[in-house]
């Protein structure tokens, strides 16, 4: 066996004749406070000043609590109260911490100690003993011998988590088709957010943007209202009819240059409402998806994967804008069975 082979056989990554040298302990350096009584006294004073600052901090915190009482409805009072409490308590804790560390670093004894690492492997006797114990337990319990018990135990352990799986499968109601429908129906009037006042087509002048909620949304209970609004919010814009590049199949979805699109971004659902009057760009502020409002809100930039759904609109006998139907595709972020 050659020299090299011997080295590899023992599993060493470095050659045995050039081991990394033990650097040993850094040379001891005498501190100022060890040499000079005056420095030590200064350090002592510094430590006690830090502890005093801590005391002052605690007092500031209590003073702030009483000097700036929290007044119902006055947010700046709350701000002052928490500010002084926070500053005081921070000083109080930091004072103790800094003082203790400074004390240890300057005045407590400063000798270096080294300890050898002990071997992690247990002794051979301890290991043999452990094997003995396991064998004994197996023998006494009959785990290997009593097949019936062993197999039924495995079975029980396998069945035990099943109830938990069933419960997890039933957390809350399933979404059903709630993602696919909104409050809009044939004849629902387009109304202004937040007042709920219906909008006449004649009021929407060229270049105007209206933030729209469906008629009746305002009257809903608060919780339901928020959920419905999150799906039904619409942006209403009138552009010069000549500017619209309309798909013949969707030609009658707009009314004389007035178009209505879902305000919920098809990326992850932020409200898309940054409308530029001249470029007809509609920008989502969250991740900069840009939609071309004049071209059925096609995505022209950014991470959104499909156009904003268009709400087909028309006017009723009194001249108010109404929906022709619900959106014809789900609004908001895509999900895996969106086309089903």
């Amino acid at each position: 066996m050659s020299e090299i082979e011997k080295v590899y056989e023992s599993g060493l990554a470095t050659k045995a004749d050039r081991p990394i040298k033990d650097p040993g302990i850094e040379p001891h350096r005498i501190r100022m406070t060890d040499k000079d009584e005056r420095a030590a006294r200064n350090a002592e004073r510094a430590v006690s000043v830090m502890f005093l600052i801590s005391i002052v901090g605690a007092i500031i915190a209590v003073w702030g609590f009483f000097a700036f009482p929290i007044v119902d409805g006055d947010l700046s009072a709350t701000r002052n109260n928490t500010f002084w409490m926070g500053v005081g308590m921070a000083l109080s804790l930091l004072g103790i911490g800094f003082g203790a560390v400074h004390w240890a670093k300057t005045l407590m004894p400063d000798h270096e100690v080294s300890e050898e690492r002990h071997i992690a492997r247990s002794s051979d006797e301890a290991r043999a003993q452990a094997v003995e114990i396991i064998k004994l337990a197996d023998g006494e319990s009959g785990f290997t011998r009593r097949k019936l018990i062993r197999r039924t135990l495995y079975g029980a352990l396998a069945f035990f988590p099943i109830p938990a799986l069933v419960i997890f499968g039933d957390l809350g109601p399933t979404v059903g088709d709630t993602l696919k429908h909104t409050m809009w129906k044939k004849g629902t009037r387009l109304t202004k957010d937040p007042t709920g006042i219906p909008i006449k087509a004649s009021e929407v002048t060229i270049g105007s943007v209206f933030h729209v909620i469906p008629e009746g949304l305002k009257e809903l209970d608060h919780d339901i209202k928020l959920n419905e609004k999150a799906k039904a919010a619409v942006l209403l814009v009138r552009v010069n009819p000549g500017d619209l590049k309309e798909d013949p199949a969707k030609k009658d979805w707009s009314y004389d240059g007035i178009v209505a699109y879902s305000k919920i971004c098809t990326h992850v659902g932020c409200p898309v409402a940054l409308y530029e009057q001249h470029t007809h760009h509609l920008l989502c502020p969250c991740h900069q998806s840009t939609f071309d409002l004049a071209d059925h809100c096609k995505v022209i930039f950014g991470p959104a994967a499909r156009p904003l759904p268009q709400l087909p609109i028309t006017v009723d006998a009194e001249g108010y804008l109404v929906a022709q139907s619900d959106f014809l595709e789900p609004v908001g972020p895509s999900f895996w069975d969106i086309r089903k």
């Binding site: 909008i199 009021e203 929407v204 060229i206 270049g207 105007s208 943007v209 009057q277 470029t279």
Partner: peptide
């Protein structure tokens, strides 16, 4: 008036 790219907010809106 809606200057530059700002949309118009007329008195009906």
């Amino acid at each position: 008036t809606g200057p530059q790219n700002m949309p118009v907010f007329n008195d009906a809106n």
